[in-house]
Each structure stands twice: as structure tokens, then as C-alpha cells.
Amino acid sequence: MQQTKRSKIACATLALLAGLHYTHAAFAGAAPDNAVKVVAAKHRADAEHSMVLGAALAGKRIVAVGERGVILLSDDNGEHFRQAQDVPANATLTSVAFADAQHGWAVGHWGVVLHTDDGGEHWREQRADTSVDQPLFSIAFRDEKHGWAVGLWSLLITTDDGGATWKTQQPGESAAAGKSGLNFFSVFAGPEKDVYIAAEQGTVLKSTDDGANWQTLHTGYKGTLWSGVVAPDHTVYVGGLRGNLFASQDGGATWQSVPSGASNSITSLVASATSVAGVALDGYVTVKQAGASGFVAKQLPGRDALTALVLKNDGSPVLFSKDGVVAK
């Protein structure tokens, strides 16, 4: 099955987050009727060194997802990782989110949505569309029932029943749709019923009714926004190409450029009760402590192409890169 030119470009863009060239090897072979066949992910001896594109906390457990359907679990604050026992798809997984310690979802290529109800040990498929490789790049859940996932060509899917059913939603004319639509790279929830999407062309979409309706916000930036998060003080942060970082203290009505300290793409932003932190492809970790005036950036000695992070209870980060778990 051949990818469209637009799909190849977008998948190459996704691969930029990991500093790699995208390869169309997410699934093993094709069925006789030329339909792509979804197969289970294999256990790999080098799983900890597989490219990681997303990570989240499931209670105290760390769950990270990445290439070839690899899902890594750690129950000792990132000291050691092991592979999940059962993952039904070997698609490249791009994002993971948990509503609580048990219920989580992961998304990736071929529009795959996977669900776990045991903290990431076992997963089952909720959605896949092998008729076109329209990847999902990000997923977020407010609670066990309400969630959103976004991806290529303005793809937006929502659920109100924990993923038992997913419906495709049109985000609005300003974001377009189909193969001419903006690519959506990060979806994240805010307070009350606010939901945000970080997209191409410096665009942020916002819903104030849990995703029923959307409005388009403009940061004033023209480049791609890869990541976003809402801090405990309700400040909205979005990060993108060349270390560009923007903040809004009024729900996205106005935006201010914030020095991040990084000069390459900001691939992930997360928040805890005490800090906001991000990572970038040039190996920078940038952190803003609660009450501080700005972000403080530090570059890793090896300058790993950082792709994801989680913050432990003590506020320290566990980092992931194109080469997997970053050694301490």
C-alpha cells in the first residue's frame, strides 16, 4: 500500500521529533487483498533503546510508548523499565495518557487507539483505520470517560464512553479538513471544560465545552507548534520549532513569547504542582518552578534528541529520546 505524498510529508515531520527518517514499517506485511494487517508488537531485547515519542504517569508507574508498538513500564521512578506484557499492534505509538492509575490510552500510526485498564500491563485495540495511514499524534483524557485524540490532516476524534466508541469531529472551517487541513500535533486539557490543540502555522484551537465546539486562536507565530500544557495557575504554554515557546494567561486570547533556552524543536511540555518543564531536540531540558520569573534551561552532556518526559513526585524529570530511555 502506497502512502500519499501528503502523508509521507507529515510522517517525516513526526519523525523529525525523534531525529529520524520515517520508515513505512509500522506493520508486518499486507493481507492478500492488499489491506494492511495489524499484528501484535513483539517483545524486544533492546526495548529500552527503542525510540520513545510519548510518556505519562499511571499513578506512580511511568508508561512510555514508541516505535514498533513498544510500551515500557517502570515501577521504581524510572530506574528500570520492562516491556508491557500484551500490545495488540506494532504501529509506531506517538502519545499516551492516563485518567487514573489503571485506565490509559495510547495512539499512533494507522489511527490506532489502544486501551488498558490494568495500568499498562495489557492493552486492547479500540480503533484502527488501515485504509489510509492517517496517524494520530496526541491523546488526552479528562477522566475515565471523556477524551480526545488528534493527528494528520486536522484529524480530531472524541469519545464520551472511555473509547468504546470514537467519533470524528470537524474542528471548524479555519482549520480546514481533508488533506489540505492543518496537522494537529498536541491535544491537552485545561480547567473546567477547556481543551486545547497545538497545530501548524502557530495555530491553537480551543474548546470551552469539552470539545463540542472549537475556536481558532493565533499566537502570532508562523511555525509549527509541537506541544502544549496548562499549568496549575491556568497559564497555557505551547512550544514548537527552534525553541519557540509561548504563554497565555487569559485562556489563549493573547500570547507572549517566552525564552525557553532551547534552540531546537520543543517536543514535549508537562506540568506538575510545582513546575512546568519541557524537552527539545538539541538536548535541552527547560524548567520553570512555581513562582519563578522564567524558565531555566540545561543541556544534557550527550545532547540527546529528547522527545518526551514525565515529572516524578519530587519534581525531577525522567527523560526519553530517539534512542529510548535516557540514562541518568
Rank of each mutant, 00 (worst) to 15 (best):
M1R: 14
Q2R: 14
K5P: 11
R6P: 00
S7H: 01
K8G: 08
T13A: 11
L14F: 13
A15I: 04
L17A: 12
H21W: 02
H21N: 13
H21T: 15
Y22E: 08
H24L: 03
A28D: 13
A31L: 14
A31M: 13
D33S: 02
V36E: 11
K37E: 15
V38R: 09
A40L: 09
R44D: 11
A45G: 12
E48I: 09
E48T: 14
L53K: 03
A56H: 02
R61A: 03
R61E: 06
A64P: 04
G66P: 10
V70N: 05
V70L: 00
L72I: 03
F81D: 10
F81I: 05
V87Q: 03
F98A: 04
A101C: 00
W110I: 00
G111E: 08
G111H: 08
V113F: 05
L114D: 10
T116V: 06
G120Y: 03
R127A: 12
T130D: 00
T130R: 02
T130C: 06
P135A: 12
A140R: 07
F141S: 04
R142S: 10
K145H: 13
W153S: 15
L156E: 08
T158V: 15
T158N: 06
G162V: 05
T165A: 14
W166H: 04
P171V: 13
F184V: 04
E192G: 06
T203L: 01
L205T: 01
L205R: 01
D209Y: 07
T216C: 03
H218S: 13
H218R: 15
T224W: 08
W226I: 00
H234T: 15
H234L: 06
T235S: 12
V236I: 10
S248P: 06
W255I: 06
P259A: 10
A262N: 04
T267L: 03
V270R: 15
A271W: 07
T274H: 15
V279S: 01
A280M: 02
D282F: 06
Y284F: 08
G291Q: 06
L300D: 09
G302E: 14
R303F: 00
V310N: 10
V318P: 07
L319S: 12
F320M: 09
D323G: 10
A327V: 13
K328G: 15
